[in-house]
Design a protein around this nucleic acid. Structure first.
Lengths: 353, 353
DNA sequence: GATGTGACAGAAATCGATTACTGTATATGC
DNA sequence: GCATATACAGTAATCGATTTCTGTCACATC
């Protein structure tokens, strides 16, 4: 067994420099408490020579602070969330914070378990893409002085700051684009609508269809678990089959997320139905994969990386100033036009007939 | 400003139960030290009623342990690494460990910065997909009693446990498959070979070509940064153009990773060169996206999720038993045959002429 | 009835930092 | 020349747990 060199502490350095631990602490933590130049240099020198690494546990215990923030998302394998996390992580790093990532896999119990672990670790900030969590949890977090920001999944708890995305407007925007392109029979294909976001997109779709005097066509999946990106892909394929079987003669489909759209395109192509010539496909998310397939996916961009960056920035501000204003930021959708949607029939603006 | 309820500590509970903190600790931490049944229940009851959440900082400071492990990867947005991390995170959770993820973005300085932060946070275990790190860092980690496992990127430091992937064999396997399919003019397209893994794949390719008496064709990119999955996609497209310009008449290409392969297919398709009819494409990685494109990508599977699982399991074992045997696990490649590679010319086994 | 033993509880030290106090010497003001 | 401020260093308490050491009973043993 290898002998491990005893870790050097602030007291070791104090002893070597013939000073008190207090003085060492003042030097090493850049306190503005005055320490004579000679001592300061001596201590710094010894610290460097001994490879001193401060023990944050001690520091944080005393000061009741923490430089780690918790992040809970459904699954990191979902490219949308991995972008969000990258955004969070990179801005956290710049401020010397560290990120603990947790994958709830859409399991409320797991989510609670993680939150408890994070509380025990004394995190003071939490960013959460929560699923169906009752407000109770958030109350307790607030009581413990933990700042939390909810992202993406609209959570109905009161008194909690959020960064949302305007799903309704996104749904409208997508649908209107298809309508502008001359489509009349537009289907909305969606995974199970057990999530507020999906219901919101659907609402946007409905509103846009209604205002154009068109009949909504809904094709919904029965089951759904997207902890695995492939499952969305597969439900996309299934939904495409369902659509075809329904014989609704849609000339365009709009899906609740890109992965689903990609599945749809895949299924359609493999049945020799040409996209977009025979059926146009509009996605929702704007993940990178969308531009790697053929045809490149027209979609609604939900700013993922930026959302992470913003959430982290806001969180750190909340934690450091006592700026406890509750807020809600609503990010706006953006249409990314690529090649999976094509014009149909008459002019763009004026509908035929 | 909202008043925050003071956090309840073990002393609070002790006071409420008229016992000493020692007794409370013994009950709450399931020590085998005997405590009378009546007291035990009383304490448990109070702890539950007060929503007591233990402060791990205190515990860990005293016991000099830690239940968080650090993970450093180039970038979480790379689907390969996000799978690895999911594997790590899920097995960590089962043992009540928590994961801090760090994205080094292929920057050695950032990597060092992260490692330092992790040391300060007193992590006792570290899984790292390192780039070009000198052995010095690892020495220091060992000195501090931190267990580390290197994954994926072969690191040349002595005395460190690793989980590797047999890149050479993977390269051979891919190349032989193409040869078996009757291809003779097979090009290896690669991002800049600044990473051991890519050189190893290339070596496998060379060996397989040589044993078949074929001439290697190398097409290498000039620059490369893959903190962004799109950049690999783009270099793939660039490499395809370079290949075409070189007029080497390859009937098959083998790329150093899937994302690159997808870029190649994309570029080829957009130039109306049909894959696989005119050019077969073989990838390397086995990420999910491979099966979403057209044609589905034939590739070499590098077990990502399993690699993460395995790394975490081994690490936790190392940390808990004093089982300090150094080890090296080499994961074996597996060929996934999909539709981007097609037979060419004569029989599979016997070469024409 | 002396002794040994095990069950049980508390006091106090400890982990590695920070910081409120206390104390001393030097400098400054008038 | 005396009061006061300032620079500087150390002592000791503290954060929230764990754990070693003591100590007290109660009970069994011979």
């Amino acid at each position: 067994m290898k002998r491990m060199k005893k870790k050097v502490t602030i007291h070791d350095i104090a002893r070597m420099a013939n000073v008190s631990a207090a003085t060492v602490s003042r030097v090493l933590s850049n306190s503005d408490y005055p320490v004579s130049q000679s001592l300061r240099e001596k201590i710094l020198k010894i610290a460097a020579e001994t490879n001193y690494v401060p023990n944050l546990l001690g520091k944080q215990l005393k000061k009741n602070t923490s430089t780690t923030i918790g992040v809970v998302v459904p699954s990191i394998v979902n490219p949308f969330y991995s972008s969000v996390i990258l955004g969070i992580e990179q801005t956290a790093r710049q401020r010397k914070y560290t990120v603990i990532t947790c994958n709830s896999m859409h399991d409320p119990e797991l989510e609670s378990e993680y939150i408890r672990m994070l509380m025990e670790k004394q995190v003071k900030g939490l960013i959460i893409a929560s699923i169906a969590n009752d407000g109770g949890m958030f109350k307790q977090l607030a009581d413990m002085g933990i700042h939390v920001i909810a992202i993406d999944q609209r959570v109905d708890a009161e008194g909690i700051s959020k960064i949302d995305f305007d799903f309704v407007k996104g749904g409208q925007m997508a649908t209107r684009h298809l309508i502008d392109k001359g489509h009349r029979r537009i289907a909305y294909l969606t995974a199970r609508m057990d999530r507020p976001s999906r219901r919101s997109i659907f609402r946007g779709y409905q509103e846009a269809m209604k205002e154009a005097g068109l009949e909504p066509i809904l094709v919904e999946a029965n089951a759904d678990d997207d902890h695995n990106p492939l499952s969305d892909f597969d439900t996309g394929r299934a939904l495409a089959r369902k659509l075809l079987a329904a014989k609704v003669q849609a000339t365009a489909v709009f899906t609740c997320n890109d992965m689903l759209a990609i599945g749809v395109i895949n299924e359609l192509s493999s049945r020799n139905i040409r996209v977009p010539e025979e059926i146009s496909v509009m996605g929702f998310d704007g993940i990178d994969v969308g531009q790697m397939i053929h045809p490149p996916l027209t979609t609604i961009k939900q700013p993922d990386y930026e959302m992470g960056k913003m959430a982290c920035t806001m969180l750190l501000n909340m934690m450091n100033n006592e700026n406890n204003h509750q807020f809600e930021i609503i990010l706006q959708p953006k249409l990314i036009e690529r090649q999976s949607v094509v014009s149909r029939g008459g002019h763009s603006e004026t509908s035929g007939r």
